[in-house]
Write a protein that binds this DNA or RNA. Structure first.
Length: 832
RNA sequence: GCGGGCGUGGUGAAAUUGGUAAACACGCUGGCUUUAGGUGCCAGUGCUCGAAAGAGCUUGGGGGUUCAAGUCCCUCCGCCCGCACCA
């Protein structure tokens, strides 16, 4: 049989074999088919959100993950490599509102398309563990996890301000708010107080920070992003007291600079501060304050957070007492103080904080220096204030003359002894708001009973199934609220009439534990068998886009810790190693339907085959970096795979199976050596952070050399064997990227299935050659290259170098100052 | 402003971690094959000067360390990403 490279035939052939033989399925310990002799490796790509068809981002993610899975298998690991769908979510629901098609129908159609394409791409998935988060078999356990957290007080309900879109009359998820506007209709988002369910992720803030140390290898920038997001700051809580005639209130503030307490000259409350009303009721300031608060309330988050926004505020006509010196300082309300951070109140130190300084300038408030030093660049006043740096303290009573850093702890201690403060830690991280007034999600398994209040649905009544509805339009509460038959229920505690919670869970809850469910996905008695989780966790290699650097990865880390605390898991961190792939662009821009610059993987798979598409996305550049899609690049990779294919056909015809003899020499040995070099190179590239682009280029070099040398080698048995070996090796090394072609070529030449063969090992004897190219430099400039014996002594190398005419031409009659010899590499003659 | 990343040919990129800068691929040029186009195969291709041999220059700019710097140090410039009135 002969003919051009026909990926369609090859690919469907092997896909059928893998499906029929269930090649990539692995069993849990204790089950038949489990191979206990091998170490385990859990290779996982982030599960896709099934919407429409897969795009190139998916292709890249799964091509990268699959290459790793194949490599690990052949390195002797028992690899678990499952797949599923994050199938609850807003786009399907929005589509339902627009078209009337049920989210289930649209989602399941999309899942079918993902399933088909994953098979067409030849991804080595253990399909026996497949899951979809929208199925009752899955979300039953999402609800169970919710209740587990609820029982431990880690899930709670409270009134909180949320992002509300007035036009759509619904709450929006954070990720649905883009620059303060509703992603869908563009309306400015407003804040609204609603009863919401939260997970107490803030309880885990310190552990989420500390356990970065337990991770094996995560990209530094992802860790940094999470660290910023958690935003831990150390400081002190200090209590300022307002003790005017009719009010007597304590106002705690958080500060990272208790050393500047003596410099506080005014005090500011956030416009949302709950005590504001009490402070001004019936005073001359009342009207102005109320007007200001209303004005701020009408502004969007976008306007309020705008850069270079001028400071605004209104005096309250009241004052608080600075605990360190008894000074009375005036109170203000101003929108630069945020209710959601710290205590919603600050002590203002204009001498050492630029924001307070700006405010002081605008309102003519005193600026007091309490630390020596000046900041020339800050553009402050003539004395160099505001000064944010360190220095000796002044105007600070008994602390004068002390360095601010050393006095810091003492001031905090003194505050504590006076009962006016203590050391304190603040986080930017807020509790995770998990309720959504949405239909297409897992119902929160709580019922409200007039007698018993909020009652958890007992485990045996799970799942609380999502009812089918007709009208998906949001009306200010979940569309579920209109499903009266579903909402009306019985109280599990007293049997009285009760109503179901109509909010559903954030889909990030679903995707925070799916990697555990894969390990025991068919279990009907429990979310997972503890032993199965203990065997496979943590995920050894997680792969996904950077866009999940914060939310998904942090939620999953949190839930893992919480579940470990509850005794369900034995690991503290879910993902030991994380690989964040870069985004593929087209014409330098992010792909989007509106720009019309999307690339459909299916189209390329159809035209060039899956092997070409997969190999191309791995060859574009380092996979952690993004890259611009290039049709010419795809063709280049296709050309290379075709070359390998034609080489295989020729080799099959012109050589017979057999190993090259030990006495192999000349260009046969050169080709053999090149094959071993390629083995070594690509193995190292796999191990050194998945440098697939260079691993693939090594195979290209091998194939190029085989083409260059083959015609001179077929005549001789060793030569023919070398060509056959080189071709089979190229197939073996390209297999993780182009599994169909790699498998086909290897089987034709070796009669074996390449995925059942161990990853090849380079023969060290063939990695060294007996001659080296000696670089000869004069004054560091390259003057000649000489073939020299690899074993030559330093003296001999010098001799050879000096013998070169090209070198001596540059030496002339100059004085030789120094001679550097790097054995096996170079000689540098320094002359004057 | 804070934190992180990056800057190399016409393009995507590589460089064994201080020792041949530009592997591999795209593109381009030429040759061969082909009835022709495409495909395929072979060769060339950093820049400047030169017919050539060869010489000089070159990793964002400037400076430094070193026999030797894309790689290390200082400094400036530019781009990308994340967070941001966070007290």
């Amino acid at each position: 049989m002969s003919g051009g490279y026909d990926p369609k035939t090859i690919e469907s052939k092997w896909q059928r074999v893998w499906a029929e033989e269930k090649t990539w399925e692995v069993a849990n310990p204790g089950q038949p088919g489990c191979d206990d002799s091998k170490p385990k490796s859990y290779v996982l790509e982030m599960l896709p959100y099934p919407s429409g068809e897969p795009h190139v981002g998916h292709l890249k993610c799964y091509a990268v993950g699959d290459a790793i899975a194949h490599f690990r298998r052949r390195q002797g690991f028992e690899v678990i490599h499952p797949m599923g769908y994050d199938s609850f979510g807003l786009p399907a629901e929005n589509n339902a509102i627009k078209t009337g098609e049920s989210p289930r129908a649209a989602t399941e159609r999309s899942i079918a398309s993902f399933q088909r394409q994953f098979r067409e791409w030849g991804i080595s998935i253990d399909w026996s563990r497949e899951l979809a988060t929208h199925t009752p078999e899955y979300y039953r356990w999402t609800q169970w996890i919710f209740l587990q957290l609820y029982e431990r007080g880690l899930a709670y309900r409270t009134e909180a301000p949320v992002q509300w879109c007035p036009k759509d009359a619904t709450v929006l998820a954070n990720e649905q708010v883009v620059d303060g506007r509703c992603e869908r209709c563009g309306t400015e988002v407003v804040r609204k107080n609603l009863e919401q369910w939260f997970f107490k992720i803030t309880d885990y803030a310190d552990r989420l920070l500390a356990d970065f140390d337990r991770l094996e290898s995560w990209p530094e920038h992802v860790i940094t992003m999470q660290r910023n997001w958690i935003g831990r700051s150390e400081g002190a809580q200090v209590v300022f007291r307002c003790q005017e005639s009719e009010v007597d209130l304590d106002f705690p503030v958080f500060t990272t600079r208790p050393d500047t307490l003596f410099g506080a000259t005014f005090f500011v409350l956030a416009p949302e501060h709950p005590e504001l009303e009490r402070l001004v009721a019936g005073t001359p300031a009342e009207e102005a304050v109320r007007e200001y608060v209303n004005r701020v309330g009408r502004e969007s988050a976008e306007e309020r957070g705008a850069e270079d926004r001028e400071k605004t505020g209104v005096p309250l006509g009241r004052s608080v007492v600075n605990p360190v010196n008894g000074e009375e300082i005036p109170m203000f309300v101003a929108d630069y103080v945020l209710m959601e951070y710290g205590t919603g109140a600050i002590m203002a130190v204009p001498g050492h904080d630029s924001r307070d300084y700006e405010f002081a300038q605008k309102f003519g408030l005193p600026v007091k220096r309490v630390i020596e030093g000046s900041d020339e660049e800050a553009g402050g006043n003539a004395e160099g204030l505001p000064y944010p740096g360190d220095g000796p303290m002044v105007n600070s009573g008994r602390f004068d003359g002390r360095g601010n850093r050393e006095a810091y702890a003492e001031i905090v201690e003194w505050l504590k002894s006076e009962g006016r403060g203590e050391a304190s830690v603040n986080y930017r991280l807020r509790d995770w708001l998990v309720s959504r007034q949405r239909y297409w999600g897992a119902p929160i398994p709580i019922v409200y009973c007039e007698q018993c209040g909020a009652v958890p649905v007992p485990d045996e009544q799970l799942p609380v199934e999502l009812p089918e509805i007709e009208d998906y339009a949001p009306r200010g509460k979940s569309p579920l609220a209109a499903a009266e038959d579903w909402v009306a229920t019985e109280c599990p505690k007293c049997g009285g009439s009760a109503r179901r919670e109509t909010d559903t869970m954030d889909t990030f809850v679903d995707s925070s534990w799916y990697f555990i469910r894969y390990l025991d996905s068919k279990n009907r008695e429990a979310a997972w068998e503890r032993s199965a989780a203990a065997h496979w966790l943590p995920v050894d290699q997680y792969i996904g886009g950077v866009e999940h650097a914060i939310l998904h990865l942090m939620y999953a880390r949190f839930l893992t810790k919480a579940l470990a605390d509850l005794g369900h898991l034995e690991v503290q961190e879910p993902f030991a190693n994380l690989f964040a792939q870069g985004m593929i662009t087209r014409d330098g821009a992010k792909m989007s339907k509106s720009k019309g610059n999307t690339v459909s993987p299916g189209e390329y798979v159809e035209r060039y085959g899956a092997d070409t598409a997969r190999t191309y996305v791995c060859f574009m550049g380092p996979p952690e970096r993004g890259g611009d899609w290039s049709d010419e690049g795809v063709e280049g990779v296709n050309r290379f795979l075709s070359r390998l294919w034609r080489l295989c056909e020729e080799v099959e015809e012109r050589t017979i199976a057999g190993e090259p003899g030990a006495a192999i020499a000349g260009s046969a040995r050169d080709l053999l050596a090149k094959a071993h070099w390629a083995i070594d190179k690509s193995t190292r590239d796999f191990q050194r952070g998945f440098q697939f682009n260079t691993a693939i280029s090594a195979v290209m070099e091998l194939v190029n050399d085989a083409y260059r040398l083959k015609d001179g080698l077929y005549g001789d048995p060793d030569g023919a064997a070398a060509v056959r070996f080189a071709t089979a090796t190229a197939a073996s090394l390209i297999f993780p990227f182009a599994p169909h072609l790699g498998g086909e070529v290897f089987e034709r030449l070796r009669g074996e299935r390449v995925w059942e063969q161990p990853w090849p090992e380079a023969d060290p004897a063939l990695l060294v050659s007996d001659t080296v190219t000696l670089i000869v430099q004069v004054n560091g400039k390259l003057r000649d290259r000489i073939e020299a014996p690899a074993e030559a002594s330093q003296e001999r190398l010098l001799e050879l170098a000096r013998a070169s005419e090209k070198v001596s031409a540059h030496l002339d009659d100059k004085e030789v100052v120094k001679e550097i010899v790097v054995p096996g590499k170079l000689v540098n003659v320094v002359v004057r």
